[in-house]
């Protein structure tokens, strides 16, 4: 009592002599509030940055695909060159369907066919009018009224088919939100490069390069499988630690020594040791329970 007491604050519940001591000990182990806030802010900034980078990638991919195809006359949209097809597929990986639509619009502004592997100009209908009637000669269900702009996106109906075949394979979720499984997107062309091109391409390919490519590919696949590439874990959103479980007892091989006669009629149903129950069995079980429950009524 002899020591001069600090005035007791009414509002703040601090400055009791015992608490500061405890505080200093805890600050060492757990980061202070400011640090935590900073960490959170940084994490969100990183997420935004990654998103911006992906968007920039998509933009530059669109710009690159504006002038496609690079290969000359022997190749056309029904038989694209191997390199073009490969880069086209790679560039499309981060795309969403809406990005693909943007690509078609941009190509159309340059008067190209909307399909990026087609070198022909798009068709222009000299007649006016906003709508066109299609499918008048086929069956009744083919009959449609469509906007003229929709038809003028392509050089031919075949190209429209090819382009839309790719559009439906693109993943709806944006690239920065995709998980590991989704980033394994594989895109097929409706008209893949013809086989003789592949043979030619293989001859040109250097074996050493191939090995290097294979090893990098393997490493990437492994990283993906481990989840290293996954966006969330890469940025530390999820802190996963895997601990090996220590097994003390001797390992022993599984045996079939026990008596199986009781299980024989259900053994064909067992799935890795689990015996699924079916409706009848469930019903019989609940009935049994029900009997006991009804006792109080009598």
């Amino acid at each position: 009592m002899a020591s001069p007491r600090m005035p007791k604050p009414i509002l703040k519940k601090t400055s009791y002599p015992a608490t500061p001591v405890r505080n200093t000990s805890t600050t060492i182990s757990t980061p202070s509030r400011e640090e935590r806030d900073r960490e959170t802010a940084l994490q969100h900034a990183r997420i935004l940055q990654a998103r911006k980078e992906v968007e920039l990638d998509i933009l530059s991919a669109i710009e690159e695909l504006l002038d496609y195809p690079l290969a000359g006359p022997p190749h056309d949209s029904s038989n694209p060159s191997v390199e073009d097809a490969q880069t086209f597929k790679n560039l499309l990986k981060p795309f969403q369907p809406s990005d693909y639509d943007d690509l078609i619009v941009e190509r159309n502004i340059g008067e190209n066919c909307g399909y990026a592997l087609c070198a022909k100009p798009r068709v222009k209908d000299p007649l006016g009018g906003k709508y066109r009637i299609v499918g008048t000669r086929g069956r009744a269900k083919d009959f449609k009224v469509v906007e003229r702009g929709e038809l003028e996106k392509w050089c031919s109906e075949a190209c429209a088919r090819r382009a839309l075949y790719i559009r439906v394979q693109l993943i709806e979720s944006p690239a920065w939100e995709r998980d590991v499984a989704q980033s394994f997107v594989k895109i097929d062309l409706l008209d893949e490069p013809k086989s003789q091109d592949i043979v030619g391409g293989l001859e040109k390919m250097n074996l050493d390069d191939k090995e290097i490519q294979d090893s990098t590919q393997n490493r990437q696949d492994l990283a993906l499988e481990r989840g290293d590439q996954s966006f969330a874990s890469r940025n530390g959103l999820v802190d996963v630690k895997i601990l090996e479980k220590d097994v003390k007892r001797e390992a022993e091989a599984p045996s079939l020594e026990e008596d199986l006669s009781g299980k024989l009629n259900t053994m064909h149903l067992s799935l890795e040791g689990h015996l699924p129950r079916f409706e009848q069995q469930k019903k019989s079980l609940t009935e049994d329970d029900g009997d006991e429950d009804m006792d109080w009524k009598l």
């Binding site: 933009l59 669109i62 710009e63 504006l66 619009v105 941009e106 502004i109 340059g110």
Partner: peptide, 8 residues
């Protein structure tokens, strides 16, 4: 129409 090329 104004596309990527014009803007670039």
């Amino acid at each position: 129409n104004v596309g990527i090329k014009h803007m670039r």
